[in-house]
Structures are given as structure tokens and as C-alpha cells.
Design a protein around this nucleic acid. Structure first.
Lengths: 338, 338
DNA sequence: CGCACTTCTTTGATCGATCAAATAGGCACA
DNA sequence: TGTGCCTATTTGATCGATCAAAGAAGTGCG
């Protein structure tokens, strides 16, 4: 590997000075067109590429986003993060940024990582993916004035509208409304919901979509709805529990809408293909089983994350395309019909 | 965010010079114990952390590994990359390195990325995950003397032993041997193999494991084996094809060993749970269905990748623990029995 | 023609670390 | 006591870029 050309090399090749080359790269508009072209020609001829670390040292900006790679959750939806990461990496690259991965076993370790990555100028912003109520990481980031965006709402009431906490999320309630309306339109009447125990923001949000739709569109009583509201812990070994639960439901419901594809798989194993089942996340499992599923629009989520981050960078400017709330963005999921 | 302390700050706090602080951090053994302790105390007291970009500028090392995030393949095994990435990120962090993600739509674009990332000192090595025979990326990396390791063997004959091409792979042949022996031990006799068409190195390797075991352990003729050797394109929409294929097999085989979990799912949908089925990759799908599956030991793979990379860094030293071939490593998979 | 005023370009300093070479300190031995 | 040698520490230069401020060229107007 021979020595890389530097700004100085380009400068002498183009017959100008270092700073002019730097200007061509960073603030092209202040350079006279003729000079700019000469410099650009020299850059191309020498295959010059700026040394990212040198620039970072001077500007104190890394143009890199840190993303934690969660320990694999063993859920079928594991690939969700994968897809989100891909969408994020792609968009990030388009915006001229990079994605740096890190791992951490617990919150304390992750905060330690924040410090290391920020102090070392490795990253200048974070994207958090698994947030929960009372997350200490978020307090740390806000206190240390580190820009960040979470994929997922903070479910605490006050937090949700906190302008310091930027978030993007998928409207799960809307997703289950779509799912429920779809099976109702297909002739179902007694539609069961298979979800997680109350208490998780995400799960409750999805349940609410089912419940609201059922209340509005059917004449089922509260008691009947309660009987159709099935709950199981999310745990791979629990799929058998879910299977038993669904099978025990008597009479068999006309359809089942689920809070996740892994629950949908359990329902499918219990009921076979006689009853329409709708999953959530549109994972390969749903595809393989031929089940309808609610697809999170991860491209849009990634786009939103980046918009908010760049907005935050450039002085809290925020969304461009007429979004009402520039600090938060709720993406509408789509129902994949099969 | 107040200004971060620098080596100079630490130096004056400890009453020594810059370089001594640097020595404590990089070559502690040349510093007298008493001095070292004083410096370490000052580092802790000031919460000093080295500025990574400054160090990289000087050393011309980024201590960062570039990994391409593949476009999601829609296979059930998508989560495999996810798990590998996680294992890699974790090990990488332990070795004091970082993982930088990038994406690229095709090989040319990826080579363009190589150039950008190397010239910018963003990364100093790459890990490639989806390699194929005659991969131009590999030629580029070797030509430009950029260290890299691939997860996956190059299936060209000459390439496989090329000392310039470091690789780690999982012994799929052994995996299918384990799978086949397991079902044979369970009393099966006519064991079918469900895999991809001949021509893919990985698929052929797995098939060979099944075939060799069947030949050695059963008295089935070549013709009988050929009839049990089922082939289908890997494509999500093809699972129905696989299902038909398996169902058409008459008489029903005693067991089916598969080249992937998504094929195992197809077999399961065709045969129900009357016949033992073994998948490959131990994805959540296999777990949810209660199927046996061959688990790639991604931790070991990640460890191998890092060993080779660090070995290459430090002058082609290579493996430590008595591995025969210091440039290549074949990890033995494990059968998860359910 | 000359002075003020832009606009574009150059020069010197700087970011925070490490490298290379020089210096100071300690110890043994003649 | 002085010389030589080894080890521990300090000093000056450097990596490649950007920032800040100074300098040069070009324009308008009295």
C-alpha cells in the first residue's frame, strides 16, 4: 500500500493551496468555479480521499452513529432488528454517515460504552432500539447532551412528549386495526387476540387496536371480548402454552390476530389452516406459513430516525415534509395480505 | 459537555510528561511501577479517555473492522447473520476493536466502499460473509494488501488453500453427519435429504455428509439413495414445492434431514410431526416447531475470524491453540436435540 | 489615479495523540 | 572518583485535516 495523497499533494497538483482544496470539499460555493474544477480534476486524478480520522480530530465530529446490537432475543422477530439495521445503514451511508456497532450486557455497561465512544470521538450520536420505561441510559444521554433517537416510544406519560427525547415508532394500534378489519371483512365475527400480558407498552398498544376495532365493528359484549383476549408470556418455550390456550377456546374463534409472528405460529399449530390468522412483523415465518402479517415499514423508520438525528444536529430543526411534531414520528404499518 | 482531558492534562496532574502517560497506556512494562501507579491514579481521577481519532491519525490504525450488512435475503436464516454479527461485535469489543457497518448493492459498489473506508482510515480490515467462487472483492483486497477474513470457504479448489485468503467456516458435512446419525440411532432407516440443487458449495457439502453417512450405516442402494435425495431451489415461495416434493415421496421416509430450517419447515408442513425432521441453523423457527437442528457455533466462528485477523495483523502468526492450519479454520457444528 | 471594499486564496496555528531522538538518573566496576 | 552502560523520562516533530486571520487580486466610485 503506497502512501495516500493528502490535501497538500492535491493542492500542489492543482496549483493552489491546502485550504482551497479543503474549501472545495467542505464549502464549494466560496471557491471560484474555474478553480474548483481544477481542484476537482486533481482530486480525481490522484484518487485523493480525505483522511477521516484527521478530519474528526480537527472538527470533533465523527459523522458516525452508534447502534447497540442487542443480544439475540430468541424471538422469531430477531430478524426485525437485522432489517432495521440494514435500512439504517443504507440511509446513513446516503447521508454521509457511518454506523458503528457495539454491544453491552446491561444498562450500566452500555452507559460505560457511551462514555468511551463519545470521548474517543468515535460516534457523535446514538440510536437506541430497546427502550423501556425509566431507562437510565436516556437520562445519561440527555444529561451529557449527546444526541440520540430511539426506535420505540418511551411509554411513560410525561416522557412521550419530552422534546429532548426524539423517537420514532410504529403505530401498533393502527396495525392491529388493519389486521382486525381485514379478518372482519373476510366474514369473521368472533376474532380472538393473542398477545402478551398487560404492562408492556407495545403489547398494550396492539391489544388496544384490536379491542377498539372489535367494539366499534361488532356487537360482542365486554365479557365476550375478554374471553377472546388471550395472553401468554413471550418465551420460545411458551409457544406450547399459546397453542393449548388457543385450542382450549371454545367454540373456536373465527379468526386470530396476534401481537407477533411467533404467536401466530403457535396459533397456526393449534388451529391449522382452517382459521385465518394474522401475525405481526412480517417475518420469514409468516411468509413461509402463508400467513397475513402486519409489516413495520422499517425503511420509513430508519428514514425518520435519521431525519430527527440530522435535525437535532442542525439546531433542532426537525422534520421536513410537513410532519406536525418535529421531535417524534409515528410510522403507519402496512398489512401484508396472503 | 466540558472539554475532555488530554494526555497533557493527565501528565501535569501526575507530575510526569505526555510521553510517559502514553507509555503507561501503550507499553506499560517500560514504565517504573511507582510512576505507573501515579499516572493510573491521575487517569482515573480525571476520567481521562484517549481520543480515538487522534490516536488513529498518528498510528494509521483504526482498530476497526468493516462488516457488510447484506441485503436481507428473505430466508429464515436471515437471523443467522444477526447472531454472527452479535458474536463478532462482542469478541471484537473484547479485543479492543470496533465494528463498522456498511452496505453495498453489488460487488463494484462494495469495492468502492473498501477504498473509501481504507483510505479514510475508518477500518483496517474487513470481514466478508457471502463469498462465492471467483469473487472480485477478494482479488481487490489481496491486491491492495488489505487484511480480511471470510466467513465461508471459497469453493474453488485452488482458492481453498490459498494462504493469502483467510477463512473460517462451519463444517456442514459434519453437521449432516450428526443429523443423519441421530435419526438413524432413533430407529429410522430410510432417511431423506432435502436440499438445494447441486452447484452451491455449501449445499453440496451438506448433502455429502448425509450421503456418506447413509452409505456407511445403511444397506440402501445407490438408486434408493438417489430417490431420497430431494432438491428444491431456495426461495420463500418454493416452500410449497418442497412440501409437494416431500409428500410425493412414497413410501414416506422414516426421517428427513434438511439443508436449512426453512426447508425443514416445509418438510414439517408436509409430514406433520409423525416423522423426525432435522433442520439446519437452529433458527427460532426450529425452536418454535420443536425440531432438532444443526447449530452453527457462531461464537466460535467469530472467535476464529478474530484470531485470524489479529494473527494477520501481527505478521501472519495465526492460531494459538494447536490448530494445524493457521490460515483457515473449520468449526464443528453441534446438533440441538429436541 | 488612488482609496475603500469585496471576493478569493494563502499562511500559520491547532486538534490529541504517538514516534524518534535526546537527556537524566542509577548502578556497577575499574 | 570517574567512566561506561542501561533504563526511565522528557522534548521536539509529526500524522492530515480544518480554523482563523492575513494577504492578494479584482471591482466600483469619487
Amino acid at each position: 500500500m503506497r502512501r495516500q495523497p493528502t490535501v497538500t499533494d492535491v493542492a500542489s497538483a492543482a496549483g493552489v493551496s491546502r485550504q482551497t482544496v479543503s474549501n472545495v470539499l467542505n464549502t464549494p460555493h466560496i471557491v471560484r468555479a474555474e478553480t474548483r474544477e481544477r481542484v476537482e480534476e486533481a482530486i480525481a486524478r490522484l484518487h485523493y480521499r480525505p483522511h477521516a480520522s484527521a478530519r474528526r480530530l480537527r472538527t470533533r465530529l465523527s459523522e458516525t452513529i452508534g447502534v447497540r446490537l442487542d443480544p439475540v432475543t430468541d424471538g422469531i422477530s430477531g430478524s426485525l432488528l437485522d432489517r432495521f439495521l440494514h435500512a439504517l445503514a443504507e440511509r446513513t451511508a446516503k447521508a454521509g454517515f457511518r454506523v458503528l456497532l457495539y454491544t453491552a450486557d446491561d444498562e450500566a455497561a452500555e452507559i460505560e460504552q457511551f462514555g468511551r465512544l463519545i470521548d474517543g470521538a468515535d460516534v457523535d450520536a446514538f440510536v437506541l432500539t430497546s427502550t423501556h420505561h425509566g431507562d437510565t441510559r436516556i437520562d445519561w444521554l440527555i444529561e451529557h447532551e449527546v444526541p440520540f433517537v430511539t426506535f420505540g416510544r418511551p411509554w411513560g406519560v410525561a416522557d412521550m412528549t419530552d422534546p429532548e427525547h426524539l423517537w420514532v415508532d410504529v403505530d401498533g394500534r393502527h396495525g392491529l386495526t388493519l389486521a382486525t378489519e381485514h379478518v372482519l371483512a373476510g366474514g369473521a365475527h368472533r376474532v380472538a387476540f393473542l398477545g402478551w400480558p398487560a404492562g408492556s407498552g407495545t403489547g398494550d398498544d396492539r391489544r388496544a387496536g384490536w379491542r377498539a376495532t372489535m367494539t366499534a365493528r361488532t356487537d360482542l359484549t365486554e365479557a365476550e371480548l375478554a374471553a377472546l383476549d388471550l395472553t401468554v408470556d413471550e418465551d420460545p418455550t411458551d409457544s406450547s402454552v399459546a397453542t393449548r390456550l388457543v385450542a382450549a377456546l371454545d367454540p373456536t374463534p373465527d379468526a386470530v390476530v396476534c401481537a407477533s409472528d411467533s404467536l401466530a405460529l403457535a396459533a397456526r399449530l393449534a388451529l391449522g389452516d382452517r382459521v385465518p390468522i394474522v401475525g405481526y412483523d412480517d417475518t420469514p415465518v409468516a411468509r413461509a406459513l402463508g400467513l397475513c402479517s402486519v409489516a413495520q415499514q422499517l425503511d420509513e423508520v430508519a428514514e425518520g430516525v435519521l431525519d430527527l438525528l440530522i435535525g437535532a444536529h442542525r439546531g433542532k430543526a426537525g422534520g421536513t415534509d410537513g410532519v406536525d411534531d418535529p421531535q417524534h414520528r409515528l410510522v403507519k404499518p402496512r398489512l401484508v395480505v396472503r
